[in-house]
Design a binder for these strands. Structure first.
Lengths: 129, 129
DNA sequence: GTACTTAGTTACCTGGAGGTGACCATGACA
DNA sequence: TGTCATGGTCACCTCCAGGTAACTAAGTAC
């Protein structure tokens, strides 16, 4: 984990990333990736449509995140040779399959969020007295 | 999302966090939380045992992360009135239940990591030429 | 000629995650 | 007397995710 750059590079070319879960979570655990994927679940969207849909993302982060998601194979990008440019983003089969286990996690979060918040309130109350 | 501090505070006291999934992912999506939870799956561990188990975490981050996980109710902390101090960390029922949907995600990651890495390599190759 | 559109890119800035090393109190042991 | 172990905390530093604002190229409408 704590490694020099050369070792890091070597490890990445050999195994790309030592721990699959950590790798996936690193990508998906950011502020926007999951939001973008779920926004694309109903179907194809263009860049500005995504931008409007998500609302509070900057165009820079949208661009960056889309690029990473495309590189990792979660989404597909189709560029039309028109002016003004038209670009369509679609979930790939990999992206769809990812949302299946993710859905279970989303349901867990919905079901247990109240309990988590209660727990937080309790601990806050204990620290305040 | 983009909000002043006062509005943020108000929202948190009212609903604690607007989006459950985002809230959970914010906590669990960091570098260490999931690693700690899985390290605790087999059973109770003490602070330094966890530190040794995970290996490359700093004591400060271990302490901080454990505190957050305890506040959110994922783990339980038991302090023994001994000298030198003895503290035991255990997965709570909530923590255990969380690992169920998480397990599905871990399996997905294991199964599809190769494909993700291939996709990355392809895109890297395309950009290099 | 001027403004609008699309899909980005670029430079610059900030906050927070995470690391490092020193420090604390207490008792056991040599 | 000093050293070790435990479970932390504190001050300080670095790096990067993410935001903002300005800019681009080409066509269309006024």
């Amino acid at each position: 984990m704590t490694s020099t750059n050369s070792v890091e590079t070597q490890a990445q070319t050999q195994f790309d990333h030592p721990c699959p879960v950590r790798d996936v979570l690193d990508r998906i655990g950011d502020q926007w990736s999951l939001l973008i994927l779920t926004a694309l679940t109903p179907g194809t969207l263009r860049f500005n449509e995504l931008h409007r849909e998500i609302g509070d993302i900057s165009r820079q982060m949208l661009s960056r995140t889309l690029k990473r998601l495309e590189q990792d194979g979660f989404i597909e990008r189709k560029l039309y040779a028109e002016v003004p440019p038209k670009v369509e983003y679609t979930l790939s089969p990999l992206g769809h399959s990812f949302l299946v286990p993710m859905q279970a996690l989303i349901e867990w979060a919905d079901a247990n969020h109240v309990q988590i918040c209660q727990s937080r309130r309790q601990h806050r109350a204990q620290n305040e007295e």
